[in-house]
Structures are given as structure tokens and as C-alpha cells.
Amino acid sequence: MLLLILKRIGLGLITLFIVSLITFVGVEVLPGDACTTYLEREAYGAALDACIKRLGLDVPAYERYLDWASNVMRGDFGYSLSGEMPINEVLGPRVKNSLVLASVSILIGIPLAIVLGIITALWRDKLPDIMISTITIFSMTIPEFISATLLILIVAIWLGWLPGIVIIPSDATFYELLSNIILPVVAISMIMTAHMARMVRSSVIQVMASDYVQMAILKGVPYWKMVFRHVLPNALLPAINVVALTIAWLLGGVVVTEVVFNYPGLGRLVIESISNRDLPVVQALAIILASIYVGINLIADLMTLMLNPRLKSLQIRK
């Protein structure tokens, strides 16, 4: 078991190494370097030389990679170009903001998705299923920038209940954030919940049709007891990996939603740093997002392994 965990961690580290190489090479092969893209028209003469010197662009690429990589391993991403401040300081609040947005969405979305998925599966093709399924399919198919814009239009502009745009600085406190994130959370969880509810629904339906559920019924197990003891543990197991992917997607990829709501999270930072040609920040973000994906998937794999007796004993026997 321990060997397996170590193996998985090792594989994760290799993945990260490859990601870092790709981003580094990607930045290298772009025409020009960090200084020319940043200085733009002023990129000549003394200013350019100073910049090159300051960023250490005069040493060979592999040395710079090693240097950068060893710094990253120590937790130091270097300096951002546009803000000319340590990237760690730029990232810190953004990571926190994204975490808040993601965790609130997860805390609301996942339980809701599971409950909806179970309801639709147990009342399959009956009224509750038809109603919920229509809504989930609907919210799955609308792109998030449309649903987000509609939410702003209806709730913020027509009804005037909530602020339409988040106008707080990126280092706002948790409480300040909370009142501002209701609409983004709704926009995000709509899609996320819909996807996961569909997943849970088909998984529960599949388990309900299994021989062991029929056996439990024929054994005289009362309906709800059967659902909770025989169906759900087996049906929700495959959902863990989907949940993990969703969480990773939330932390990094809700770019559109963050931009629409002007939310100061990681997703918006990606857009900002790309449009500012702030290559060191882009590099840092790529590594951070990759680590989140790798880490969460690792946790999900291990959880599946722990919870599934079949896989567990298989591993122990080996």
C-alpha cells in the first residue's frame, strides 16, 4: 500500500516536471523574451540590457531552467514583471480568493448534486426525475458566460438584490468576500451540479439494476435500508474521481466566470498575466494549476483505493 502511494506520488512529480519543462520551453520558443515582450517599444539599448541583466536572461537556457526550478522547489517563483513584485505576493491572495469561491461552490454543489442524482435515479422516468433532469440538462447546455450574464441581468440589474460585479480588492477579508460571491457561486455550481448529478444518476441506476440489489430486495431488506447500505456506497465510489476533476477545474479553470464577475481569483489572473505578457507569472500559474490537478487526482485515487475493498485487498495481496 505504502509502495503504491509512493509510486503514485513519484508519477505525479514526473508529471509536474514535464509540465514545467513544457511551459519553460514554450516561453523560450516564443519570439522575443520576457524583456522584449514587456518593454515593447522601449526594448533597446540600456533599458533592454538592464532588464536582461535583472532577469538573468544572459545565461544559457538550461541554466536558467535549473535555477528557476530549484527556486520553485523552495517555493520562490521569482518576480512578476508588470507589478515588479514577488510573484508569491501576487499569487497569495488570488489563491485564497479562488479557494473561497471553490470551496463554497463545492460545499453547496456536491451534496446538492448527489441528492439530485439519487432522487432522479430512484424516481427514474417519474415526475421528479423528469423535472430535475430537464433543469440539469438545461443548465448543462447553456455556456457559463451566458448564464452568468443572465444572472447579473436578472438578480443584480432587474431585481437589484445583489451586486452584479465584485468590486473588492484582491486582499479583501473572508467576510467581505462572502457577500460578494453569491452570484459567482450560483453560476459555477449550476454547471458543476448538473454534470455531477447526471453522473450520479446513471451510476445509481446502474447499481439498482445489479444482481446484488435484486438479491437484497429478495432477501427482504426494506427499501431505504437497501438504498443506503447496498446501493449508495457502490454507486458513489466511481463519483469520487469526477468530483476530484471538478474541484481541480474549479480552482483553475473557471476563467470565464471570474472574468464576467470581475472576481479576483486565479482564473482572472491567468487572463491578466497573459494579456500583460507577464511570462514569469504565466509560468508560475501553469505549475500551480498543474500541481492542483495532480494533487487532487492523487487524493481521489487513494480514496477510491481505500474505500473499494476489492482494490484494497488486491493491493495488499501484491
Binding site: D211, Y212, Q214, M215, A216, R229, H230, N234, P309, R310
Partner: peptide, 8 residues
């Protein structure tokens, strides 16, 4: 094999 619930 299939009629016994796998997680119990």
C-alpha cells in the same frame, strides 16, 4: 459472485 454486495 454478483449477487453479494461487493462493499459489505
Amino acid at each position: 459472485g454478483q449477487a453479494l454486495t461487493p462493499n459489505l
